[in-house]
Amino acid sequence: MIARRFPIKFLAALCGVLALAFPTLAADGTPAKQLFGRKKLPSAMPAEVHGFYSKGCFSGGIAIATDGPYWQAMRLSRNRRWGHPQLIATIDKLSRDAAEKDGWPGLLVGDLSQPRGGPMLTGHASHQIGLDADIWLTPMPNRRFSAQERESTSAISVLKAKSVVVDPAVWTDAHGRLIMRAASYPEVQRVLVHPGIKKRLCETYKGDRSNLNKIRPYYGHHYHMHIRLRCPDGSASCRAQNAVPASAGCGKELDWWFDVALKPKKPAKKPKKTAKPKKPKKPKHILLSDLPTACAVVLNSAGPATETEVTFQAVSGARTAFAPVKPVRSPFSLPALVPVPKPRPFVQ
């Protein structure tokens, strides 16, 4: 296969030459989200990240299994359970550590990335390079969800209704341990949560607080946490995000969210004269030409030559308190067969 005979840099350069020779291939105006959203399987290339979290792609992606010993994948119809092998391995590691050490029964795994990354058809400005994962703040139940339940079940907010503070009737110490566990991994660059969750951790968390600076407040994120990994080794074209501040972020930085960002806005005064309605601006879509050159190679490369039932599947650490893992068939558009990573990134 050509992708394995030539390095990605050569293929990227070749793609650039082809784009100049045949401009319609790269500049036909089709939004990149449509191009990447059509791909059902990853590129059969080595795992590599290209670009930034909100403008990029990745090759050699693998999918997390629908069910693992301590996780269940949700929203299967979206086909967004793909990621760089390091991300999938980190989720598996977190699921085990949280169950064994933090009293968290198992993870409900939300959106990761599309098979080849890139802009998504709906939602998520980031999640484009296979290094982002949404983990619900709802504990996994003591049963397996059906395929339909994985589509219709909603994550539960940990905030009080119509409030920006944590609801003590929902929040448990295990929530805090789960979030701080994720932040403790060296490969995790930051964990995004609602400012109310950050405030709760600042005020009450009694464990190791050395990674509290990695917990970053952001809008939304009151029903899930967003885990973001650092650029992995071997991905020279991955553009890193700025490092998090060294301070815990429990002072003025956090106060700003409640004093300014989340404060209810005053109703706007009615204009004295009726203003002429402005023409709505057409949304600016990211095009393939806006992404790193290598993304054209990733997009147009062949899929996997061999397929099997699952990609990443934990083979050790059998469950004891829950029912045995049973395969779940999705009636939606998720491919039934997905490639097996070589080598598998098992984390024991």
Rank of each mutant, 00 (worst) to 15 (best):
F346L: 13
T293V: 14
A21G: 04
D102G: 00
F52H: 12
M1L: 07
R75D: 12
S163H: 09
S152G: 01
G103H: 07
R230H: 13
A3Y: 04
G68C: 09
T30E: 12
L112M: 15
K284P: 00
P168L: 12
P245G: 08
A240H: 07
R75H: 14
Y219W: 13
P304E: 08
L334D: 05
R190A: 10
R80L: 15
P331A: 04
L41Y: 11
V164F: 13
G123W: 08
R239T: 13
L131P: 05
R81V: 14
T24N: 00
W82F: 14
A236C: 01
I215V: 15
V310I: 06
P217D: 11
Q128P: 03
K206S: 11
T293R: 14
V297M: 13
S154V: 09
P277F: 05
A26S: 15
T204K: 15
E149I: 04
L20A: 06
D290I: 04
P46H: 06
G83T: 03
P277I: 06
R96W: 04
L41H: 06
A26P: 01
P23E: 08
R319M: 10
P141W: 03
V49T: 05
Q86M: 04
E187V: 05
A99M: 11
V158K: 03
H84I: 09
W71E: 07
C15L: 02
D233Q: 12
P69M: 13
T90A: 01
G16M: 04
V328W: 07
R150D: 01
V298L: 05
A268S: 10
P327N: 08
Y205N: 12
K252V: 14
I179G: 02
A26Y: 08
H194R: 08
